[in-house]
């Protein structure tokens, strides 16, 4: 979606067009909700926070700089609301509902154990590591975009992301999920040569 169409959508939303509001929600609901789920690890909390995110978005939509992209701006609000929710959650028992283990989202192939291990590793990371890892590898945000969303220097983002990856790699090695036979790259012959970056 181009920035111009985002600007046009925002303009219609500011005029009170309910259809435009719905279009904006539908355009970004997957990004917002998935980030909330990854960071909060609880579906009901994620849904509540995602709704709050959109209320905040529409409340401050007139302050959005139309020269910038809308998606990182909305993801920045999402990160901030998730942080607030997590800080409130400290006062009450944490509820983790292991979304990745539900039957509806369980992969059918043998990669289930691997994905579950990756998910657990991400869940147990430091919050700032988890934020940059999710934004980079699951939402395809660049270092610069994450820097704008998190409001940290690019160098810090790189450091956090490298540490997050290293933690996961060490965990996978400890869990014995690393292929030990032959050269590791040969195992990927059938896979695409371009790695997933979101």
């Amino acid at each position: 979606m181009t920035a111009d169409s985002d600007a046009e959508l925002v303009r219609r939303c500011l005029l009170g067009d309910a259809a435009a509001m719905r279009s904006l929600v539908e355009r970004f609901q997957t990004d917002v909700y998935s980030v909330c789920v990854r960071l909060l690890r609880h579906s009901q909390d994620a849904e509540d926070v995602a709704q709050e995110v959109f209320i905040r978005v529409f409340r401050s939509l007139n302050r959005w700089d139309c020269t910038r992209q809308l998606r990182p701006w909305i993801l920045g609000i999402t990160i901030n609301r998730c942080r607030t929710a997590m800080s409130k959650r400290v006062r009450r028992p944490e509820l983790v509902d292991h979304l990745h283990e539900t039957a509806s989202q369980q992969p059918e192939d043998d990669s289930h154990e691997l994905t579950a291990e990756i998910r657990t590793a991400v869940d147990e990371m430091r919050t700032d590591y988890r934020e940059v890892f999710v934004l980079f590898h699951e939402h395809g945000q660049s270092y610069e975009e994450i820097s704008a969303v998190i409001d940290r220097p690019v160098g810090t983002i790189k450091t956090w992301l490298h540490r997050a990856r290293t933690e996961i790699l060490i965990r996978l090695r400890r869990r014995g999920l690393v292929p030990s036979t032959d050269h590791p790259a040969k195992k990927q012959e059938a896979d695409q040569s371009v790695p997933v970056t979101g």
């Binding site: 719905r22 929600v25 539908e26 609901q29 997957t30 917002v32 909700y33 998935s34 789920v37 990854r38 849904e47 995602a50 709704q51 979304l99 990745h100 989202q105 369980q106 992969p107 192939d109 990669s111 691997l114 994905t115 291990e117 990756i118 998910r119 590898h137 699951e138 990856r165 996961i168 790699l169 060490i170 996978l172 090695r173 999920l177 690393v178 292929p179 030990s180 050269h183 590791p184 790259a185 195992k187 990927q188 896979d191 790695p195 997933v196």
Partner: peptide
């Protein structure tokens, strides 16, 4: 060598992560 294997596993796992979709009536 183990680090390279873990990297391949991580890339494989990231590819196979199930997408997180909002509820159908979220909007």
């Amino acid at each position: 060598r183990e680090m390279a294997g873990a990297t391949v596993a991580l890339l494989t796992g990231l590819k196979s992560l199930p997408p997180v979709l909002p509820p159908a009536n979220f909007a």
